[in-house]
Write a protein that binds this DNA or RNA. Structure first.
Lengths: 152, 152
DNA sequence: AAATAATACGTGTATATACATATAAATTAA
DNA sequence: TTAATTTATATGTATATACACGTATTATTT
């Protein structure tokens, strides 16, 4: 669906403003599609991201701060997301002995199983849903990083 | 900042997976930048969107459902966003006389003023922050719509 | 060493998303 | 016309974002 149809408007100041809205809409669309597949595993998109970050370091442990700085949405309240994963017994919290301020999080066996199953589902969704060739994706990545190039 | 730095990872399955994450990160980045400017006006990004939709139809009124289908994030709980705008006296709720199920929302004078001031701020932010030429934006819009082209 | 500052995490609050359900009004079917 | 269905909105609950603040622990300064 074209952006104009999706938000029932074609009043854009210019193509750049339209592109910004298009990025916001596409992000919502991607998140929605990803979340659909995760539902059967009883986890949310954000919980999946935390599990994936833990997997990236597995079997090493990783503290809350290190998870936070790897999240796509930088204001994620990681302790609270970990709360929910802990209730489901997908992760375990331990106070670091090297620095007792730190809480280290580790995947449980159940967490690994859920992550593997849900990754299959997510990957399949992304492949069937994200219709871009490798070259188009390279181009899209370039444009998005150019868009953000004002960043300090 | 490159995506790799932003999420401290360079393990992408392929450019398409990276592009999807890049869209998600860029959307968060855009929202964060927009929200900064709105803070001085005491409204959130989502409240701003509702005001902008109302302005698009002003002085005509518009019902909750019509606002909802124009929102970028389609699962927005519009009645609740309107609640907050109503408390700040930026909008007014009236039951439609043609169809008493409908609640029609209209901008107040205060709402118009806030919208105009915040629009200036938002537009300025977007111009200084979104670094793309008109042609690059056209290209980006094309790629995003191609990405979503699996949509029913 | 004691005082101060910085850091890591948890928690509280307001607002939002996501989704289910309730309620009232309008439409359609019987 | 009554009953059933659909529609529009509001409301409830769980989770998330955004941000402020408290507390414990570590690091730094005096």
């Amino acid at each position: 669906m074209k952006l104009e149809e999706a938000i029932k408007s074609n009043k854009f100041k210019n193509e750049t403003q339209k592109a910004a809205l298009n990025v916001l809409y596409t992000a919502w669309w991607l998140k929605t599609n990803m979340s659909k597949g995760l539902k059967e595993f009883g986890i949310t998109h954000e919980q999946y991201n935390v599990l994936r970050i833990l997997k990236g370091k597995y079997p090493d442990q990783i503290c809350v701060r290190d998870i936070a700085c790897r999240m796509i949405e930088k204001n994620s309240n990681v302790p609270r997301i970990v709360d929910r994963l802990e209730i489901k017994k997908l992760v375990k919290r331990t106070t670091s002995q090297l620095d007792k301020r730190e809480t280290v999080i580790s995947l449980t066996q159940a967490g690994i199983l859920i992550l593997e199953a849900s990754t299959k589902s997510i990957d399949h969704t992304m492949e069937t849903v994200t219709i871009l060739t490798e070259m188009e994706s390279v181009q899209l990545n370039k444009l998005l990083e150019k868009l953000r190039s004002s960043e300090e």
